[in-house]
């Protein structure tokens, strides 16, 4: 394995569900230590790509390489110690408490006779503290608000202690304040714990603000990939989303901010 090959690479993949082909010859390297965000219009194949990278969908051709080896040739438990994935639709068992749900993140590290080591205990407590759900430990998950619940799921994924973590639309169904809260949490995990994060996001401006590496997709193909500043241009947004727009600097962060073109102006023109 060459030193400049990242740990997780999708190489020349054809991705398909039963009869429908979503993507062909798709190659996506995930830079080590990046916060990679995949963007694109609905049905462009971004969630499918994430599922393939998480070995939830087997490529019809090509392969996903984890540390240089085909991810489907490695034991699923072994992979689960390196690569975590939070799918969009997960069901908390009826009546499970926050602490119990987060503890399930330790599953790939446990066994029949090794059910709850001191490490497990410490790591689960740490994951709950990092996501701010320690106070909720004994509450049933089904009584929490949407934002709290999403933080609990992230805590579970953290407890898995994988250097690579994939998140499928972690902000869906959350209001704007909770979206920012969850993304700030992701950014902190990326910066402080040095994990490689890959997320699918819908909101272009949030993607541009939080990502260190953007992958823009359309019709199952990568149109552009790289730093947000290089990827998010008016021309590319028009090409990928079919949306005429201006791109200005985000006054908070200096990252690109997409302002859709308006049909007509309401206020006075700027000087």
């Amino acid at each position: 394995m060459r030193a400049d090959t990242p740990r997780l690479v999708g190489r020349a993949m054809t991705l398909a569900y039963e009869r429908r082909t979503v993507a062909e010859d798709l190659t996506v390297p995930v830079p080590d230590g990046s916060f990679t965000v995949i963007i694109g219009p609905n049905a462009c194949g971004k969630s499918t790509l994430l599922r393939a990278l998480a070995r939830l969908l087997r490529p019809a051709a090509g392969a996903v390489l984890l540390d240089g080896a085909d991810i489907h040739r490695r034991g699923t438990r072994e992979v689960a110690r390196v690569l975590g994935m939070l799918p969009q639709s997960s069901v908390a068992p009826d009546g499970i408490t926050v602490a119990d749900l987060v503890a399930r993140g330790r599953h790939p590290h446990q066994g029949l006779l090794r059910q709850w080591s001191r490490d497990d205990e410490r790591i689960v407590a740490g994951a709950m503290a990092d996501t701010g759900v320690a106070d909720l430990a004994d509450r049933p998950v089904d009584q929490l608000s949407g934002g709290q619940r999403q933080r609990v799921w992230i805590a579970m994924a953290l407890a898995q202690q994988t250097p690579l973590l994939l998140l499928d639309e972690p902000t869906t169904y959350l209001d704007i304040a909770h979206q920012v809260e969850v993304l700030d949490l992701c950014a902190r995990l990326h910066e402080e714990q040095g994990r490689t994060l890959v997320a699918v996001l819908h909101d272009l401006n949030q993607a541009a603000r939080y990502a260190t590496h953007l992958v823009a997709m359309r019709d199952g193909a990568v149109v552009a990939a790289g730093e947000p500043r290089r990827v998010v241009t008016a021309a590319l947004v028009e090409e990928v989303f079919g949306l005429p727009c201006r791109v200005i600097d985000d006054p908070e962060t200096g990252t690109p901010l997409v302002v859709p073109a308006a049909r007509r102006r309401v206020g006075p023109a700027p000087a």
Partner: peptide, 23 residues
């Protein structure tokens, strides 16, 4: 009975169970 723990994780959805290393 030995598969009970894995079975509990399977109850959270096929995708998440796979992600947690349950075959």
């Amino acid at each position: 009975l030995a598969g009970g723990r894995a079975l509990g994780v399977t109850g959270m959805g096929e995708d998440l169970a796979t992600a947690l290393g349950v075959p």
